[in-house]
């Protein structure tokens, strides 16, 4: 019997599943730059971000998405960084944001 066309479909569950262990590539980023853990999502990095004015780059959001295992989005958005370093100057928790962004950008495999 052919598959019926219902005219609608179900949406995936968008809830975060925290019980799933961290991806090894996320683990690797956190180990290479432990200061990422100090982020408290205050948003100062994003408020001063040069690229954030015209791209979806916001470092604190990338940290949250990294924890959530969304490596592809993190990798893509990190490409927008211009490495100007204003975020790092302003971060009250002393996160080494430039290194963190380089590690995040490397999550996206280079074009073959």
């Amino acid at each position: 019997m052919p598959k019926p066309d219902f005219g609608f479909s179900f949406a995936p569950n968008r809830a975060l599943e925290l019980s799933v262990p961290l991806l090894p590539e996320v683990q690797a980023v956190l180990e290479a730059e432990p200061s990422i853990r100090a982020c408290m999502a205050c948003g100062q990095c994003a408020a001063v971000c040069t690229a954030g004015v015209f791209t979806p780059l916001a470092f604190y959001r990338l940290v949250l998405q990294l924890w959530a295992g969304e490596v592809e989005v993190v990798g893509q958005r990190a490409q927008h960084c211009m490495l100007c370093g204003k975020c790092q100057m302003t971060c009250p928790r002393g996160v080494n944001i430039r290194n963190a962004l380089l590690l995040m950008a490397a999550l996206l495999p280079p074009k073959p």
Binding site: F6, G7, F8, S9, F10, A11, N13
Partner: peptide, 17 residues
């Protein structure tokens, strides 16, 4: 409305899962 039913079936699916 048929086109809204995806909303309905998604909720039932969450329960079944």
């Amino acid at each position: 409305l048929q086109e809204n039913r995806g909303y309905s079936v998604s909720n039932s699916r969450i329960k079944f899962e």
